[in-house]
């Protein structure tokens, strides 16, 4: 079922691209970009939902509610659900697109592995996956030489007699870049999510670098393209915070988007409508992000 619906079509598209461009490395790049393009609506939705959730969670009244019901988890959950419902923010809104994307990403990864068949048994399995109209006899096994790499082997570039894992180093750098630009602003000191994010920023590049170092370079190439494409997608949506990476870049004063109005529920402790912060000439990155947050209103 998984093979028929995901792996087989993915592998055949990858092989078809290889037949057209006559280069497996280029085919991996194009195929990864194609998948990123197809899943873009899901990514965009996920980003939108994440931003709305972050905005909600950074609101002082939300924090106050958290504080108020800190010792009553049941009541807190009830109030949170009520708040989510009334503000129209779904707590699972950013999870669902991710869940839908997950099998696609795994399928993409597995189809690249399948296409890089190197043993007789792997070639046999690949040959049986190929649709008849592609004529497996002509293309199998895939010629997996790309630049200085053998895409079926871990990549090393000999420089002055030293085998340097260039691709793994670039994967580490781009994963770090990706986690940096994607990291949402912290919603407060001691925030558990912020602590997790900080740890993730540290461990994710190490993990991906280790995988790129030890796995076939075809997969490392996929990691690299995927990282770059994700950064570009985020930047395209104006969500990347480059000032985190390049301190000399001052985040330009954003033309404040019309902020979504979110209706906040009645709360005896909180009577005033929160005003949007006014943009300054050179706002900090955090302030700039804050400006884009939705505006909350008390429910009348």
């Amino acid at each position: 079922m998984w093979d028929t619906l995901i792996i087989q079509p993915f592998t055949n598209v990858l092989l078809a691209i290889t037949m057209v461009v006559k280069n497996f490395g280029v085919a991996i790049i194009l195929f990864t970009l194609l998948i990123k393009l197809i899943t873009y609506p899901l990514t965009a939705k996920q980003l939108k939902q994440t931003a709305a959730m972050q905005a909600l969670q950074s609101d002082p009244r939300y924090k106050k509610m958290m504080e108020k019901y800190r010792d009553n988890k049941e009541k807190l959950a009830e109030e949170q659900m009520k708040l989510y419902k009334e503000t129209g923010v779904s707590p699972f809104g950013s999870c669902l697109p991710t869940l839908i994307q997950f099998p696609i990403i795994i399928g993409l990864y597995q189809s690249i592995i399948k296409a890089m068949a190197a043993t007789p048994l792997e070639i046999l399995r690949l040959e049986r996956l190929v649709y008849p109209f592609l004529d497996a006899t002509k293309i199998l096994p895939i010629q997996n030489r790309f630049l200085w790499m053998d895409l079926g082997q871990p990549e090393r570039l000999p420089i002055l007699g030293i085998q340097i894992p260039i691709l793994a180093i670039i994967v580490v750098a781009t994963t770090w870049l990706q986690t940096k630009v994607m990291t949402p602003p912290s919603t407060g000191a001691g925030d558990q999510a912020a602590a997790m994010t900080k740890s993730m920023n540290l461990y994710m590049p190490i993990l991906m670098g280790w995988m790129a170092y030890s796995l076939a370079s075809g997969l490392a190439l996929y990691f690299l393209v995927s990282n770059v494409a994700t950064v570009v997608q985020y930047s395209g949506q104006g969500r990347s915070d480059w000032s985190k990476i390049l301190p000399f870049i001052k985040k330009k004063s954003p033309a404040p988007e019309p902020r979504p109005v979110v209706v906040f529920p009645d709360d005896d402790d909180e009577e005033e409508e929160q005003e949007a912060p006014k943009p300054t000439a050179k706002p900090s990155a955090r302030a700039a992000v804050k400006q884009q947050r939705p505006q909350y209103k008390r429910k009348k």
């Binding site: 190197a118 007789p120 792997e122 995988m211 796995l215 076939a216």
Partner: peptide, 10 residues
Amino acid sequence: CAMGPRAESA
């Protein structure tokens, strides 16, 4: 298990 060579063979 990326520790060793990833290969399926007979």
